Simulated scan of single mutants.
Amino acid sequence: MSSPPMRVLAHDASSHAVIALFRLPGMDDALFQAEASQILSDLLELRRRLES
């Protein structure tokens, strides 16, 4: 798996984490879903750490 581009943007007193997921040529449904699942897992972990 590749590392999709990520940015953290300031927004008032908080911030937004933005990740771009691209479906590359030849990427099948299973691999695309695996990438999306990993991103969701990473974002949930980031949220857990920031809110604790």
Score class of each variant (00 low, 15 high):
Ala20Gly: 12
Leu9His: 03
Ser41Ala: 07
Ser37Trp: 00
Val8Asp: 04
Met27Lys: 10
Asp29Arg: 14
Leu43Gln: 14
Leu46Arg: 13
Leu31Pro: 07
Glu35His: 11
Leu24Gly: 12
Ala34Phe: 04
Leu44Val: 05
Ser37Asp: 15
Ser3Asn: 11
Asp12Glu: 07
Leu50Gln: 09
Glu45Pro: 10
Met6Asp: 01
Arg48Phe: 02
His16Ala: 09
Arg49Asn: 14
Ser2Glu: 06
Glu51Leu: 08
Arg49Ile: 01
Met1Pro: 11
Leu43Val: 15
Leu21Ser: 04
Ser15Thr: 10
Val8Pro: 02
Leu40Glu: 05
Gly26Arg: 06
Ile39Thr: 10
Pro5Trp: 08
Asp12Gln: 09
Leu9Gln: 04
Ala17His: 08
Val18Ile: 14
Met1Asp: 00
Met6Ser: 15
Ser52Ala: 15
Phe22Ala: 05
Ser52Tyr: 05
Leu50Lys: 07
Leu46Glu: 00
Glu51Asn: 14
Ile19Lys: 04
Pro25Asp: 13
Gln33Arg: 12
Asp42Phe: 02
Ser14Val: 10
Leu40Asn: 11
Glu45Leu: 13
Arg23Met: 05
Met6Val: 14
Ser15Pro: 00
Leu43Pro: 12
Arg7Lys: 13
Ser37Asn: 14
Arg47Ser: 07
Ser15Ile: 02
Ser41Cys: 02
Leu21Asn: 03
Ser3Asp: 06
Pro5Met: 08
Leu21Phe: 01
Ala17Gln: 10
Ser41Leu: 03
Arg48Glu: 06
Pro4Asn: 09
Ser14Phe: 03
Met27His: 13
Ser37Arg: 15
Met1Phe: 01
Ile19Gln: 04
Glu45Gly: 13
Pro25Arg: 03
Leu9Gly: 00
Met6Pro: 04
Ser37Pro: 07
Arg23Leu: 01
Leu24Lys: 07
Ala13Met: 06
Glu45Arg: 13
Asp42Trp: 04
His11Trp: 03
Ala30Pro: 04
Pro5Tyr: 07
Leu44Gly: 03
Glu51Asp: 15
Ile39Lys: 06
Ala30Trp: 01
Ser15Leu: 01
Gln33Leu: 03
Ala13Phe: 03
Leu31Val: 11
His16Val: 14
Ala17Pro: 06
Arg47Ala: 04
Ser41Asp: 02
Ser15Gly: 11
Glu51Ala: 12
Arg49Glu: 11
Glu35Asp: 09
Met27Glu: 15
Ala13Asp: 13
Ile39His: 02
Asp29Trp: 05
Gly26Ala: 06
Asp29Cys: 12
Ser2Met: 02
Arg47Asp: 10
Ala20Asp: 12
Val18Gln: 12
Phe32Asp: 02
Leu31Asp: 13
Glu51Gln: 14
Ser41Thr: 09
Arg7Pro: 05
Leu21Cys: 10
Phe22Ser: 07
Ala13Val: 10
Val8Thr: 12
Ser52Glu: 14
Gln33Lys: 12
Leu9Tyr: 03
Ala20Glu: 09
Ser3Glu: 05
Ala30Val: 09
Arg47Tyr: 06
Leu21Gln: 00
Ser52Leu: 08
Ala17Ile: 15
Ser14Gln: 13
Arg49Gly: 15
Leu21His: 01
